[in-house]
Design a protein around this nucleic acid. Sequence first.
DNA 1: TTGACATAATACCATATGGTTTCTAATTTA
DNA 2: TAAATTAGAAACCATATGGTATTATGTCAA
Lengths: 106, 106
Amino acid sequence: MPDPAQLCFRALADPTRRDILKMLSQQDMTITDVAGRFDMTRAAVKKHLTVLSDGGLITVEPRGRERINSINPLGFGPVLSWFDYFDGFWDDRLSDLKTAIEKDKT
Amino acid sequence: MPDPAQLCFRALADPTRRDILKMLSQQDMTITDVAGRFDMTRAAVKKHLTVLSDGGLITVEPRGRERINSINPLGFGPVLSWFDYFDGFWDDRLSDLKTAIEKDKT
DNA sequence: TTGACATAATACCATATGGTTTCTAATTTA
DNA sequence: TAAATTAGAAACCATATGGTATTATGTCAA
């Protein structure tokens, strides 16, 4: 019922969740850690973490009374492989895309 | 108000819209063309096309009484450059993972 | 053992989202 | 010109989504 790619894309659709992923790429965090960086309740953050977990983008490890949230690089697989579909298309129709992106990053 | 990356991710979050993008990567289509491939009304398809257009992922050209919808490769820029943020991270962690696996095999 | 701490779970709310139906406007074409 | 075709717009509906507040559970430390 729940398509992995769909869960993945859905998880990435929210800006708060994308920010959380960037944070987790720097260091593992508990819910309270993450909540401390946002102007919202721990409950709201917990929901976001659940969506990220459902999408396979993070993993959660219990440690004592805490839960350590870590990013899961392998979880990006479904999204990236969806983009792979367009690789040939991009190569054919436009070689400027990559340079356009590089410019965008400055 | 509307962050380009957000509009982009939002547009990609729906499976119907992702399918439309795949179709449009094969050939340009009118709304009726697209609607013919789905079990939903033209009005619903039109809404999806609007979201895709807002996200910059497609362009629409009037031709007579028709509107030609085309995929816009440059529109993927914001999403792809967001993923670029993780490039270094992926390289690091995935190689860690690889060595961990190698170690495990001894 | 008692209290403080970290998290989970539930009920609830407002708005966004994906869909429908109906009606209108513009462009072909017979 | 009249009829058919293509598209847009508006009103409406059910459900999903992002948030809150409240209550409950498990774990550490004094």
